[in-house]
Amino acid sequence: MADLSTSYLGLKLKNPLIAGSSPLTASLDNLKRCEDAGLSAVVLKSIFEEQIDVDSDSAVDGAEEYLAHADAYGFVKGASMERHIDAYLTLLEDAKRSLQIPVIASINCRQSGSWIEYANRFAACGADAIELNHYTVAADVEVEGNAIEKEYLSLVKAARKQIKLPLSLKMGPSFSSLANMLRRFDELSIDGVVLFNRFYSPDIDIEKLSLVPAQMLSSKDEYALSLRWTALMSDEVRYDICASTGIYSGSTVIKQLLAGAKAVQLCSVLLKQGLSSVAKIESELAQWMDSHSYSKISDFNGKLAQERMPDPAKWERVQYMKSILDAQKG
Rank of each mutant, 00 (worst) to 15 (best):
Leu4Glu: 09
Tyr223Phe: 14
Val278Ile: 05
Leu209Glu: 13
Ile247Ala: 07
Ile47Ala: 02
Ile204Ala: 09
Val141Tyr: 08
Ile148Pro: 02
Ser234Trp: 02
Leu4Gln: 08
Lys329Val: 14
Val156Ala: 07
Glu307Gly: 15
Met289Ala: 08
Ser244Thr: 12
Glu142Lys: 13
Trp288Arg: 10
Tyr294Thr: 08
Leu91Thr: 00
Gly192Ala: 10
Leu178Ala: 01
Asp203Lys: 05
Ala119Phe: 07
His84Cys: 08
Ser268Thr: 12
Ile107Arg: 04
Thr6Trp: 03
Asp57Phe: 12
Tyr152Met: 06
Ser154Ala: 13
Leu132Lys: 03
Val143Thr: 14
Tyr200Asp: 10
Asp205Leu: 06
Leu217Asn: 14
Ala68Leu: 14
Met181Cys: 05
Thr6Gly: 05
Tyr73Cys: 09
Ser210Arg: 10
Arg238Val: 10
Ala179Met: 06
Ala87Glu: 14
Ala138Ser: 12
Leu17Ala: 05
Ser189Met: 09
Thr90Met: 10
Cys267Asp: 10
Ile206Trp: 08
Gln328Asp: 14
Tyr248Cys: 11
Tyr135Glu: 07
Pro202Met: 11
Glu144Tyr: 06
Ala243Ile: 00
Met289Thr: 02
Leu92Glu: 05
Gly192Arg: 01
Met171Glu: 04
Asp36Cys: 05
Lys12Thr: 15
Ser244Ala: 15
Ala259Gly: 06
Met216Ser: 15
Arg183Ser: 09
Tyr248Ser: 11
Leu155Gly: 01
Ala313Phe: 07
Ala305Ile: 00
Gly330His: 11
Ser210Ala: 15
Pro23Met: 05
Lys164His: 14
Arg308Lys: 12
Gly38Glu: 07
Leu31Tyr: 02
Gln328Phe: 13
Ser22Ile: 03
Leu266His: 05
Lys220Asn: 14
Ala158Asp: 14
Leu188Tyr: 08
Leu225Ser: 08
Pro213Ser: 08
Ser112His: 14
Ala313Leu: 11
Arg238Tyr: 08
Leu13Ser: 03
Val43Glu: 01
Ser249Pro: 09
Glu151Cys: 10
Leu4Ser: 07
Ala26Phe: 06
Glu117Thr: 13
Phe185Asn: 04
Met171Ser: 05
Gly62Cys: 07
Ala243Glu: 02
Tyr118Gln: 12
Ala95His: 00
Ala95Glu: 00
Ala286Met: 03
Phe48Trp: 12
Gly10Val: 08
Lys280Trp: 03
Ala327Arg: 13
Asp57Met: 09
Ala26Met: 06
Thr230Met: 00
Ile52Leu: 12
Lys280Asp: 13
Cys34Gln: 00
Tyr152Gln: 01
Leu167Ser: 04
Leu44Ala: 02
Leu91Trp: 00
Ser7Phe: 08
Glu117Lys: 15
Tyr294Gly: 08
Asp53Ser: 09
Phe48Ser: 11
Ile324Asp: 11
Gly74Tyr: 09
Gln328Pro: 01
Gly260Asn: 01
Ala124Val: 10
Glu64Ile: 15
Ala327Pro: 03
Ile190Met: 02
Ala129Ile: 04
Ser249Asn: 10
Ile324Arg: 13
Ser58Gln: 13
Leu275Glu: 02
Glu131Arg: 03
Ser293Phe: 09
Leu195Gly: 02
Ala224Tyr: 11
Ile241Tyr: 03
Val156Gly: 00
Lys14Gln: 12
Ser174Thr: 04
Ala231Asp: 01
Leu271Asn: 10
Ser21Gln: 01
Leu270Lys: 04
Phe185Arg: 02
Leu91Tyr: 00
Glu151His: 12
Leu257Ala: 01
Glu65Lys: 13
Phe175Pro: 00
